[in-house]
């Protein structure tokens, strides 16, 4: 098992080296644009928010970055390695160890027929853990960290509330100490009070684990609370990016201005 900690990565590369470097990433669906010419750097420990209206290409971009879809053009370098040139074995290995992906719908990210403990343990077993007691111990530990009682470890996710399912999905993803976490609307579809609690939890985990995160959302509250930097998309393109406070307090692009003002009206 090779699990890197953020400290480790900084030792090798120094904090000045981006963990993820994206250049000119483009994905088309036939003649329709999914996302076009997206470029950015993500540094270790940094949280990048991606906002934009529905259909602006946020999920497309995220799934291309995570390797769930193949980009048509562009380059992705992770930790200095060319992701698009990697063999599928290496890329899938990366997504089981260094990376994690939290889906909006927990059903897409969980095995609904498998107990909570099995869900959390899967990534450990995928990277070679073969001691039942240790796997279970780690699973219980992680359930605790996402505020799920230890006595639920043998329950299936179908017996959990939406918020619990989402927390379980997060535990399942973080158990192997990934360095880079992709999240697509992790708080979408949840009650407002549940959202707040999840956000709080996420913020704590991101800080404690020093995670690098790319989080897609259309909720500016999520962005304000979590993201160091913000990228605004429209029609598949990045129309504005910068430090979160700067972008939100002084939006330059007309679309961003609209986005900010529409939130302020609520």
């Amino acid at each position: 098992m090779t699990l890197h900690t953020p400290e480790f990565s900084q030792k090798i590369h120094g904090p000045d080296q981006p963990l993820l470097k994206v250049e000119g990433l483009t994905k088309r669906y036939g003649s329709r644009i999914g996302c076009a010419d997206v470029s950015f750097d993500l540094y270790p420990g940094e949280v990048l928010g991606i906002v934009g209206e529905s259909g602006s290409g946020k999920s497309t971009l995220l799934s291309c970055l995570a390797g769930h879809q193949r980009a048509d053009l562009g380059r992705i370098a992770y930790d200095g390695r060319d992701v698009l040139a990697m063999s599928e074995t290496d890329r899938r290995r990366l997504s089981r160890t260094d990376w994690a992906y939290v889906h909006q719908n927990p059903r897409d990210g969980l095995r609904m027929g498998v107990s909570a403990g099995g869900n959390v343990g899967e990534r450990l077993m995928a990277v070679g853990a073969r001691h039942y007691g240790q796997i279970r111990g780690k699973a219980v530990d992680w359930l605790g960290r996402v505020e799920i009682a230890a006595d639920r470890v043998d329950d299936r996710p179908s017996a959990f509330s939406g918020g619990m399912q989402q927390r379980l999905q997060i535990a399942r993803n973080l158990v192997t100490s990934p360095r880079l976490v992709f999240m697509d609307e992790p708080t979408g579809g949840l009650d407002v009070s549940v959202q707040a609690r999840l956000l709080d939890l996420l913020r704590g985990l991101v800080r404690d684990l020093g995670l690098s995160v790319i989080i897609v959302t259309h909720d500016l509250a999520v962005v304000r609370l979590l993201a160091h930097r913000l990228m605004v998309m429209k029609s598949g393109r990045v129309v504005e990016q910068g430090l979160t406070d700067q972008v939100l307090d002084d939006p330059q692009h007309a679309y961003t201005q609209l986005l900010v003002s529409s939130v302020l009206q609520v």
């Binding site: 095995r111 498998v114 107990s115 403990g117 077993m125 995928a126 279970r136 043998d154």
Partner: peptide, 14 residues
């Protein structure tokens, strides 16, 4: 990628 086989055995023991 055979981690899933052990998930099945894990579920058995659990």
């Amino acid at each position: 990628e055979y981690g899933l086989m052990h998930v099945k055995l894990y579920e058995d023991i659990a």
